[in-house]
Nucleic acid binder design. Sequence first.
DNA 1: AGGAGTTTGTGAACGCGAGAACAAAATCAC
DNA 2: GTGATTTTGTTCTCGCGTTCACAAACTCCT
Lengths: 221, 221
Amino acid sequence: MTARTSHDTAREIPEATVARLPVYLRALTTLSEVGTTICSSEDLAAAAGVNSAKLRKDLSYLGSYGTRGVGYDVDYLRYQIAREMGATRDWPVVIVGIGNLGHALANYSGFRSRGFRVVALLDADGQRHGEVVAGVVVRPFRDLRGIVREHGVAIGVIATPAASAQDVADQMVGAGITSILNFAPTVLNVGADVAVSKVDLSKELQVLAYHEQRKATQETA
Amino acid sequence: MTARTSHDTAREIPEATVARLPVYLRALTTLSEVGTTICSSEDLAAAAGVNSAKLRKDLSYLGSYGTRGVGYDVDYLRYQIAREMGATRDWPVVIVGIGNLGHALANYSGFRSRGFRVVALLDADGQRHGEVVAGVVVRPFRDLRGIVREHGVAIGVIATPAASAQDVADQMVGAGITSILNFAPTVLNVGADVAVSKVDLSKELQVLAYHEQRKATQETA
DNA sequence: AGGAGTTTGTGAACGCGAGAACAAAATCAC
DNA sequence: GTGATTTTGTTCTCGCGTTCACAAACTCCT
């Protein structure tokens, strides 16, 4: 029970490291596509845009998948990270709110290529029902519970306006969803057993504007 | 030269705080809309989804805009944060790459309402030229330099495929853009004087999948 | 006016993450 | 086989950010 093998996935991986693993995965895929079979931590760090010491430490949390004096086998390391991340599995996902952003997300090829399968597009607006987006038909929001049960959906994406986001989240949790990616500009209140991640499209732009503003005011000083 | 007033914007604000200011701004706007004129740090922290001590410390970097025993004047604080962030200004922005995501970004009302004005939509694909998106006509990418000069654009958004992102970034920097928001899944190499912020739509989903995976493997253990 | 009750602003403690530096381990040259 | 070289994995240190806890300052009630 307490025995831990080097392949045990129950080890604690720091959140900061987890957040970078997708970046490494992407960099490894790129390296693999251009025919690179072996890479050093220096190479991979450059491709991922991080410090090489940090990269090595991050990878060490997963296990020892490199060879000293040589480097990392690109495909092998990629598989190990993908397995750890759960990217070798197929994750059914529902997207709620098929406006401009919902459309873009449904069509985003990066989801499919990383193991996410959009099993349903839902919208409360009856006018959108029946429309086919990215090969999936838009259905009424009330179908959520049935779809979640049928496909075993654990992850939901909210792309609705802010006003409806909390209600959507409540219904998602009620239907059995345990992870929510929220694109609506609202703080969601959910139980502690539900993971919520938030992406704010304008937040990053505002941070950039702040630094621009600072540059400008410092020059004039 | 070295004299600093309490309104001086040259004070050093930690990056972590800067990243949260847009969240506070959004929460204050919401509070204002429902008619709240005064709020405590506890109220605002709840609305923003953070710890109240952290909120107070964050605000203290801007100055003393609250009243002990009372709280914060919602509209006054909102203005102060907006001013500090540069949100009271008008920021011209160009978006390059008018695919699904570019469409969504061009139509995103959150940009306009926060002081960002999309002055141009550019795409290398001639088939898209002339199309009108969100009231703005799509123009050839080669018009970039002229547009940047004409409108004094400092911020550019990249919504192209990964393959063209680096080239677009180079051209942006050459045209005089100093802040880039990158939605393409690539690490951009730019000079140290250019600020780059990256949003990866699938990264957050992958992190959620990781935690789902962990939950699943721990239950079976 | 003065005391009780609130709430801000901040000093201090703590914990996590980043990066430098080095030991361990593999290859390569001869 | 042995020493030189390369590169990983890890230890150590430092700094930043978070949180606690409390003094300062304001309002309200009597």
